[in-house]
Nucleic acid binder design. Structure first.
Lengths: 349, 349
DNA sequence: GAGTGACAATGAAAGGTTTCAATTCAGTGC
DNA sequence: GCACTGAATTGAAACCTTTCATTGTCACTC
């Protein structure tokens, strides 16, 4: 009396290797060999087993496989903002590397919420993913240290944590990016310059702002002359909001140029300017950050600081894979260099 | 002699329920009860077990859990283009519903490649995800029928398959969307109108085009008077490319208006027009599709056909969950209505 | 014709969790 | 004291695959 005969009446009981073995008249182990080391199985038997598999509609059970193997065939990328093309481009870079290694990538959107990030990280650890790539909403979360200690490697993407010895990281020099952006505006002769960005809990925003201030200082101006228009997120609506506040300032004190912490803000700001009648770049020059695809297609093509997005993702994935393969691996901090792309939005009138 | 004492020297052997049970001086089953039915365990014992867990750094093994339970706590959304904000917005809608049910969402980017889509679907089935949401690159793939037959429910998002009785689906009436777009252009008095989009293997593109033709016919014009500029993908670069071809046409025969199959194309086209000196809307009116966030922030704010993106995702997720819970559930085909949002890009000069 | 080696196939054990029927125990009512 | 109750806890079985030491088979060689 075999285990089979699962009437088609109710739902589908699982078809397992056992059933395949019975149908093909071979042992359990042979079926497994067909799946995992086909070269050990004679052509004749292999064919019989494969036929049985497709006839029964056998689907390998990944849970059981993983349970035995102790690890999965999956990576995960926990990203800060699924609606920001910057991160989806980074994800593409990751996917390319993963695909070459025959790994799947689990994309998780923390939406910049620490509790959601924590919940994803917990789940991913429980799923025993091979490793996690993350652009953290909360870079100080304890779990980021615990995960590698318990055996799940973590690579920090688009962020560095000073003197971090438990993670690899890949980032772009945000300080330099800020310098480039502001240096450019200073060079174009702007006197009153603003910085649009926030929250300052985001390291990216802090670093870009500090870079901007350094550039001001280098030009012999007081760094605090940089007017900070704070935002609660790096999104298009927040950019529009900042634009409204800007429009509310008397023209005499209003900045003649602003540097935005990312392109979404810059696009929102730009849109609001068009609505309000502030001319760009004549009344207001704008520099964005990230150089997302839409920057060039904006109302006024946007000057922006370009980051090697795909490369960022690909490198991070490579570091992760290296760490997975080599347990006592020395953590590396890779820093890429950004590049200023000048377009109309910052043209001198 | 307990199972413990796993020297910190090498790697970390797993800490399992067994170890927790030993440390807390209770049985296996009790630990499991603390995890799954805490109300069955006395407060004192529960506390002891929980302490042991955090001391040992216990991490539940999801594979084993799933293996026993037969299903996971995960949904997946296989999307067509990770770089298109339309799909990430749909994903947001899905995530909202999933989060409420305490499910994770696996986002997979098929990048419009059938073989990649197939590979993801295969993996997801092996992982025994609760169900799959998909905007298919290949709507005729056999696996889309096999999955539900073998027990993994599938909901089609942003697409319908005529007379489909094996899937629920959620879509927006693309035909109507096309009619709206073209009706608008006809009404504005345009005589030579183009359609930019492709490949026609994408049902969305076909339906929008057919709708457009219907609108032409309704206005008493021959449907084939719609000049089709075919693209190989619905992306910004392809839009630029189409823009170049358009600019190459003699001004006398060049359309005075185009309807683009999505906003990415429209934005690329618009950008190319700005570069080439074709004035929008004076020389060329443009209507896009999707009304993504960037449409309003474009060089010339873009007239577009708005789709209820989040709602689309949320509804699809709800249908999927309903199907998961109720095995003999009647498949539903939900169709939303699009809406024309008129902006500057189609203003009559 | 015994011995050797290569190749195929086998089947039991292991992996960590959950489930459930069975057991223990303290308490209650008579 | 006894039988009974309900709550708390237990331990073995089940989930499905992979691994690996073992057995079986056959063709060759000396």
């Amino acid at each position: 009396m075999t285990v089979s005969d699962r009437g088609s009446a109710g739902g589908h009981r699982q078809v397992g290797v056992k059933d395949v073995a019975a149908a093909a008249g071979v042992s359990l182990g042979t079926v497994s060999n067909v799946l995992n080391r086909p070269e050990l199985v004679s052509a004749r038997t292999r064919l019989r087993v494969e036929t049985a598999m497709s006839e029964l509609g056998f689907v390998r059970n990944e849970s059981a496989r993983q349970l035995r193997a102790g690890r999965s065939r999956t990576l995960a990328y926990v990203l800060l903002d699924g609606a920001n093309p910057f991160f989806t481009d980074v994800a593409q870079g990751i996917e390319e590397v993963a695909e070459a290694e025959d790994l799947s990538v689990f994309l998780c959107n923390s939406d910049n919420r620490a509790e959601r990030e924590l919940s994803y990280l917990t789940r991913l650890e429980q799923q025993r993913v091979q490793g996690i790539l993350i652009t953290p909403a909360d870079p100080h979360a304890a779990i980021l240290d615990e995960l590698p200690r318990r055996g799940t490697p973590v690579v920090i993407v688009d962020r560095t944590r000073g003197g971090d010895t438990t993670h690899c990281s890949v980032a772009v020099d945000d300080g330099l990016g800020g310098e480039l952006a502001l240096g450019h505006l200073v060079e174009r002769g702007h006197e009153r310059i603003g910085f649009v960005g926030g929250p300052l809990t985001l390291g990216q925003v802090r670093d870009r702002k500090q870079g901007a201030e350094r550039a001001l200082a280098a030009a012999g101006r007081p760094p605090d002359s940089l007017l900070h228009l704070e935002t609660t997120a790096l999104t298009v609506p927040e950019g529009r909001n900042a634009g409204q506040r800007l429009a509310g300032l008397p023209a005499a004190t209003r900045p003649t140029a602003v540097f935005c912490a990312n392109d979404l803000l810059a696009l929102g700001l730009l849109q609001q300017c068009v609505t309000t009648g502030i001319r760009v770049p004549d009344d207001l020059a704008i520099v964005g950050y990230d150089d997302i695809e839409f920057a060039a297609a904006a109302a006024v093509p946007l000057t922006s600081v370009r980051q090697p997005r795909r490369k960022l993702g690909a490198t991070a994935a490579e570091l992760l894979l290296r760490e997975v393969q080599d347990p006592d691996h020395v953590h590396e901090q890779v820093l890429f260099t950004p590049e200023l792309v000048v377009r109309t939005s910052s043209q001198t009138p």
